[in-house]
Amino acid sequence: MKTTIPVAVAFVAGVVLVVSFFFDEGTWVGGISQEFKIWMTIVGGFTILLGAVSITRVNWSAVQRKKEGWPYKLLTLISIFVMAIPSVLPNTWSPLFGRDVGSIYDWLFTYLDSPMMATMFATLAFYIASAAYRAFRARTAESTVLLVTATVVMLWRVPMGEAFLNMFPGDIPNWLNTYVMNGANLAVQRGIIIGAALGAASMSLRIILGIERTYMGKG
């Protein structure tokens, strides 16, 4: 029962969505399929909610047991509640509640969460510069091709570099766009897209037919 019911559910749900692809939206199959899609958004929402609750539980447990670094985890917990609680209260009580512009939720996102996330990713510029200096080596013929292409593309994509490339004859920027980006690069990306899509389709078929069950976990 622990495996049969889930496999049956995945089969029915998958088959309905596959079959509906071949029918008009107004048919009964189309109707069921649309209803399933609405259900998907709801179940999908719960999975994200599960993640948020899980983070809260993990941090709560660490604070209770006074694990190493627990004051920081307490800060995480406080941040979760300060953000979440005002957002679930109705904005008819106060404009500070809810999620609209002017609410606590929106303020905390705009002035704390958003700049912090942007900064965390901005630090990657320093790391990639350091990595380029330390590890980007022309050790073999293949890595030399990679290095030369990267360098020329870096030049081409900025005004100063493009001005430099234009000092040479042969309209190098246009050649790069045509034969590197829309030639070799496009071909490789297309190969990867086709390969990955075939993989995704076959994995989907395995899930629908109950051959692939690893998503259920153990037990």
Partner: peptide
């Protein structure tokens, strides 16, 4: 470390508030 942990908490709180409103209340 303080900024990092506040960021993690606010992000989890954001997820909760968004899903509560747009999915649990509005959609369900």
């Amino acid at each position: 470390k303080i900024a990092e942990h506040v960021f993690a908490g606010l992000s989890a709180g954001y997820y909760f508030g968004l899903i509560w409103d747009t999915v649990i209340v509005t959609q369900l």
